[in-house]
Every structure is written in structure tokens, then in C-alpha cells.
Design a protein around this nucleic acid. Structure first.
Lengths: 338, 338
DNA sequence: CTGTTAGCGCGTTCAC
DNA sequence: GTGAACGCGCTAACAG
């Protein structure tokens, strides 16, 4: 391992000169700066990040802390895209990514201490909840943080927060469904999170624009990516005096699962019954018929979140909430009743 | 931030005693050891990993270096499962995961130096190729490495290597297809990688056991997860004088894409034509009809690889190649010709 | 402009 | 058994 000491000896200068040269210090004349750097590359020098981090009290590393269910873990369909967006942005700025596990430390103070002990420059929090002491205290701490797709409405005010335009996404989807003549629609909302409440708003806004009153029968509780409940819910809906002509599922997995269940009951999707999803996963586009859904560009969400975090680390001010646009994907799973 | 200095002051001892106590040094009497630790927890002490790493010349961190295509990136359908397996195993042993990008350093020596500069304990290499100088030199370096699902046959001999039982997986699948009376089968092999060659072996073994000779017409070149070529390939196959009754695709995405293409041409999957996949992704189980495929337990592969790496770091010897069993998933996409 | 020096927090050798 | 002291490699304050 070659250190700045070796370069200093080779160049006949002191270590501080080397250190300055490598940092492009304006104190040094251009000539020595170039000379030192030339020696460094010739010797194959690479800065010891650990020593540098210890000295500076900060590292070129960002932590990614995910609060996904244990069941899904990293296999959550949106996780890989978010991570990729984060990685592209951070790597471009010479930052590394440390994958954090919230299981390692039991209480919030311990978590924050252990983050300090790693000299992380900042932390990206995925799907955190303010109900969690860990998230709440972490946001209040001196460690720069950005939240991605959290659970509580208050997050939009308290901290930097990046998410999709859930309200608009669901508004667009509902409008599309209404344009096909459906009026008896049921939205199987997912768990009571911020994103869900936003989608409900968008759903209601589209209905109201058409003069259709929003009543309780148009909602049914459901859970994101929880496939085992889908069958029971569908049966409850079909048992109604006036079964819905269109069902909006919390996500594309649930929607595609519904395809199979409805088919088994003799329905033809997009003809006798209509189905919509949310998230815009590949699975919906490989399904037959292609699913009408709303695409969330989670890569862009991750990239944006990383970008905001870097700005926060640099001390630049930045608006609190960033919305990444969703896009309506029109498939053939909604029948035309007009 | 509380340091060992603070604990020393509080306990009326020296920093070296604290350091020893926290490391459970046998030099210390049990009593002081317990006392010091009690103070440490009371003050909320957390060891500074950076300083510790600098001193020891090693950190509790494992790098994960992925050589996936740029196009797929982390969104490769198998990546999340592998990563999750790795994370579970490493977190259980108090190791952290650093996501490495091979774009950051241009040549191999630079990459290795930068890994040293981070004091990583070891590196897990995903889908590496020995053709790459980076991979070849990294394996030969003093940094402990384990390969996951690489491209070259030589890998099985050169280094620790973890992969699925590709040969057996394809053997099982082919046997299942043969048992349904198919003899005119075409295997759309993926790119010419180690895993592909293993699967070809398994395919041939199953055929030979039934006395069916393996000839060139039973193979057709294809690419993993490359959906835009699927249509053209299918049309070539259907244009044969004797079109195959069953097509085995390189992966489940290609297989499910084929569903749509074949349907458009008037075929009913599992009735007029048979389709099989590989990987055992959820998508195949949501498709109609359910896809017959081979499941790779990539979570177990990741876990095993992490386990082997930890043993290597500890200096324990370990057999060179580890195979994680595949499992045949029988759907309804293969018609019964008997 | 450049060199000397003092730590960052921890682990470890060497004395006592 | 325990403490003093040094150094891992780098940065920055202070001299000159």
C-alpha cells in the first residue's frame, strides 16, 4: 500500500505538500501540484478512505436504511429500481452506498450513535414511519436525511421528502376509468399510509369532477402486496346486490392475482369485468390482457432523493417535498361501457 | 460522541483497560471487565468503526461488486433475492454491506487499491467474468473473494464459487417435458455462459436417457432477458417444416413474453403449443396458464456465498464449489401428448 | 509558498 | 493486572 509518505519521499517534499497537492489546494503553485499528482499516479497511489474519514469526521458514504417488512425485504418490487436510481446518482458524485439494517441496533439513540461511528455523510430512509422512534429521532438528529415514500402526512412538512405524484396518478387512472363509462367502481385501498391517503384524494377528485358522489361503498380495505386476501375480498365484492364493474387494486401484483381468481369464476378480464392496478410493473404488461395501471418511476425517485441529500450535505437549501411524476399506462383490462 | 477516553475517566482507569475490557481480553479480571462494560452502556458508548478499522487494518464490511449489464443494473430479477440472502447472513454476523460500482475505477490495479483503501474484509462478486482483468486480478489478490454465478467454466476450479444446480435443474425440466410425450423440443439457450453450458449438459443428459439423440436443430441461440428478439425467434421456429411442440426459453420473462406472441398467432399455450422457462420468478406463477419452470433459490445462493466468504476471512478452509439445489415447478404450460 | 506538528479514536506493545 | 505511549494514514493549524 502506497501512502502520501511514499509520495513525499519520492518527490522530495513534505506530506502536507502532498496532501495539499492531491486536494488541489490553491495555496500551491500549479507546477508542484501537477508534479506531485504525476508521482502519485505513477506509484499507483489511492487515498486511504478510512484514515481520511477518521481525520475529517466524515466519509464519502451514504447509508441506505430500509424499513420494509421482513417478509418482503429487498425483494419488494420497487426496491431495486429505487436503489439503482440512488446508486447512479451517488456514484456519479463519488459517494459510496452502505446498506444499513435497522435490526442491528435496538433503540434509536444506539442507531444514531452507530451511524456517527461510521462517519456517514447522510442517510436515505426508505418507507420509514414517524411512529418509529428510530426514524423520528434520526430525522431530528444532526445527520442529513432524506425520506423516500414514507408513511405519515407530517413527513411532508418535517423533513426532505421525495415521493411520486400519488394523488395525480390516481386521479388520472380514475378519470380514464370514468371515461369508459364505469360508475360502480371499488378502490381496494392499501394500508393506511400517506401514499394511500393521497391516492384516495385523487380518486375522489376525479369522481367529484364528474358529479359522482364519493361514498363508503366505493372503498374496501386491502393490503399492499398481500396476495392471500385478494380472493376473499373479490368474493365479498361480487356478493353485493350491485357488484362493481371495475376494481382498482392497491398494486399490480394484487391486480394480476385478481386476473386468475376472476377467470376461475368465469369472467373475462376487460370484457365482463374491469381491473386496474398501480405501480406499473413489468408483470402487468406481460399479463393478458395488458393491465391498465399507473407507473411510478422509482428510479427517478431514488435519483432525486440522492440529489437532494447531496445538496443538504453541501449545506444548500432545498424545498422540502419533491414529487416525481407518475404516468398512466393504458392496457386492455378496462372494458368500454359507453 | 462518547469515546473510550470518556469511559476511562468515568471508571477511573486508563484507555487501554477500557479497550481490553470491551474486547473481552482474558488479561483482565472478570470484575473490571463487567464494570467497564456497564459504564459503556450507561454512557451509550458505540465503538468508532472508522478508527477501529484504521488501526486494525480491516473493517467489518463486505463489498458487493456486481457486473450486471448497464441496461438491467440492480433491476435484474435475481439481484434483489441474492442481495437479501447476503444481507441476512452478514447482518447476523455483524458485517455491513458496501455496494461497489465497477465504474468508479478504470483499471484492475486501481480497483484493488481502492478496495484496500476501504479496508474491506472481503468482496462478493456477482456475475463476474474471468475475461475481465478486474475480476481475474481481484480473485488473485489477497482480498478474500467469493464468486456468485459467474460466466466461465474455469471459475469452478480457481476460486470459491457459488451457483445453482443448473445441470440438474435443466435435466429435471427436460425429463418432465419428455414424460408428456414431447420429442420435438427446442431449447432457446441463453448467452454462452457457464450456467448455459451446464443447462445444455442437463438437457442432453435427459434426452440421451430416453434414447433421443441430441442434434443441432434442438438448440437455438437467444439472450437472457432480451425480450425484443423473442418474436423473431419464434417465427423462425414455427416456419420449420417440423415446428417444435415445445420451446424452452432462457428465462421466465422470455417465456411469458412468448405467451403473448404465440396467443396472437392463434395458439393456446398448454394445448396447441408448450412453453417452459427458467428461474422460477413470480411472474410465471401469475401468468395464465401457470408456467412450468425451474426455480433457483437465489436467496440461498447469496446466503451461502456470504457464509463461505466469512469462513474464508476467518481462514477456515472450504470446498471450492457450492451448489444450491434448484426445484422443478410444474405449471400448466406443457401439454400432454401421451 | 512550504514544512513541522498535533491529533482523529482505537489497539497493542512494552514497561511497571 | 494495569497504564503510558506510540502509530495506523491523513488533514489542518501554525510557523516560518
Amino acid at each position: 500500500m502506497v501512502t502520501i509518505k511514499d509520495i513525499a519521499r519520492e518527490g522530495g517534499v513534505s506530506v502536507s505538500t502532498v496532501s495539499r497537492a492531491l486536494a488541489d489546494s490553491p495555496l500551491l503553485p500549479q507546477a508542484t501540484c501537477v508534479k506531485i499528482k504525476e508521482i502519485a499516479t505513477r506509484l499507483g497511489y489511492v487515498k486511504n478512505e478510512v484514515a481520511s474519514s477518521l481525520k475529517r469526521g466524515a466519509s464519502q458514504t451514504i447509508g441506505v436504511l430500509s424499513f420494509l417488512d421482513d417478509a418482503l425485504g429487498f425483494s419488494h418490487p420497487l426496491f431495486a429500481d429505487i436503489l439503482e436510481g440512488i446508486a447512479k446518482q451517488l456514484n456519479a458524485c463519488d459517494y459510496e452506498i452502505l446498506l444499513l439494517s435497522d435490526h442491528l441496533s435496538e433503540d434509536a439513540d444506539q442507531l444514531i450513535s452507530s451511524l456517527h461511528a461510521k462517519n456517514l455523510s447522510g442517510v436515505l430512509i426508505l418507507w420509514g414511519s414517524l411512529q418509529s422512534q428510530k426514524v423520528a429521532k434520526l430525522i431530528e438528529s444532526d445527520i442529513p436525511t432524506v425520506l423516500i415514500d414514507g408513511f405519515d402526512d407530517e413527513m411532508t412538512a418535517m423533513t426532505n421528502f421525495v415521493t411520486s405524484t400519488n394523488e395525480i396518478g390516481m386521479y388520472d387512472l380514475t378519470k380514464e376509468i370514468l371515461s369508459k363509462g364505469h360508475t360502480n367502481i371499488v378502490y381496494l385501498c392499501g394500508n393506511d399510509y400517506y401514499v394511500t391517503r393521497e391516492r384516495i384524494k385523487g380518486f375522489c377528485r376525479a369522481l367529484q369532477e364528474q358529479g359522482i358522489p364519493c361514498n363508503d361503498s366505493m372503498f374496501h380495505p386491502a393490503e399492499y402486496y398481500h396476495l392471500s386476501n385478494v380472493k376473499e375480498i373479490i368474493e365479498q365484492l361480487l356478493a353485493r346486490k350491485n357488484p362493481p364493474t371495475c376494481m382498482i387494486f392497491p398494486d399490480d401484483y394484487c391486480a394480476v392475482t385478481a386476473y386468475g381468481i376472476l377467470r376461475d369464476k368465469g369472467y373475462t378480464i376487460g370484457k365482463d369485468i374491469s381491473v386496474a392496478g398501480f405501480d406499473g410493473l413489468g408483470i402487468g404488461q406481460y399479463a393478458q390482457p395488458r393491465l391498465t395501471t399507473v407507473n411510478q418511476d422509482m428510479g427517478a425517485v431514488g435519483k432525486r432523493a440522492a440529489d437532494v441529500l447531496l445538496q443538504k450535505i453541501r449545506g444548500d437549501v432545498e424545498s422540502n417535498v419533491q414529487f416525481v411524476p407518475t404516468k398512466l399506462i393504458i392496457g386492455e383490462s378496462i372494458c368500454d361501457l359507453t
